[in-house]
């Protein structure tokens, strides 16, 4: 057991963990923060997406011990117009992928604002302003939705792009 400290959704947590415990299992099983979901446990679906020091990551492939000292934001710590936009645009059905989609979208918008390119970014810089649907689709492709609420998700993200001051 190793004691680690994380700042989870604004409050400091000190926890003893075994090295084999993933950040996702630490959140879900020990801390009862069940917003981040387990869809594949191998980085293939994005349902476990959380923000670690502001960057989106797959919590299932993160060993909790390696995140000692980090600031972790899960859906439980998000209060943002994007949530209302997801409802308005019907960006979900069953709701299982939704926390991951929302956290991923927030991280993604931050990356876009910071000028980080994607596979569909043309030569030169990332254009200012709102990302195009094509950019959002490519950048969000790490978040699967089997219900197929993709159209609603893209529209919801477009609605709030440019407002992501967290």
């Amino acid at each position: 057991m190793t004691e680690i400290q994380i700042k989870l959704n604004g409050s400091v947590e000190r926890i003893d963990v075994d090295p084999w415990v993933s950040l996702l299992d630490l959140l879900r099983e020990t801390l009862k923060i069940t917003g981040p979901k387990k869809g594949c446990d191998q980085g293939a679906c994005g349902a476990c997406t959380v923000l670690a020091d502001g960057r989106r990551i797959n919590a299932c492939l993160a060993l909790a011990v390696a995140y000692d000292g980090s600031e972790i934001t899960t859906i439980e710590g998000v209060s943002h117009p994007i949530q209302e936009a997801f409802i308005h645009r019907d960006g979900f059905q069953c709701g299982y992928c939704t926390p991951g989609q929302i956290c991923s979208a927030l991280g993604m918008l931050g990356e876009y604002q910071a000028g980080m390119p994607s596979a569909v970014t043309e030569a030169g810089e990332v254009p200012a302003g709102k990302p195009s649907p094509e950019e959002i689709r490519e950048r969000m492709s790490g978040n699967l939705c089997r219900c197929g609420a993709y159209n609603g998700i893209i529209m919801a993200i477009q609605d709030v792009a440019g407002t992501e001051n967290r």
């Binding site: 439980e76 998000v78 949530q83 979900f92």
Partner: peptide, 8 residues
């Protein structure tokens, strides 16, 4: 159930 599903 939108609020429940978008807030975790």
């Amino acid at each position: 159930d939108g609020p429940a599903k978008t807030s975790g």
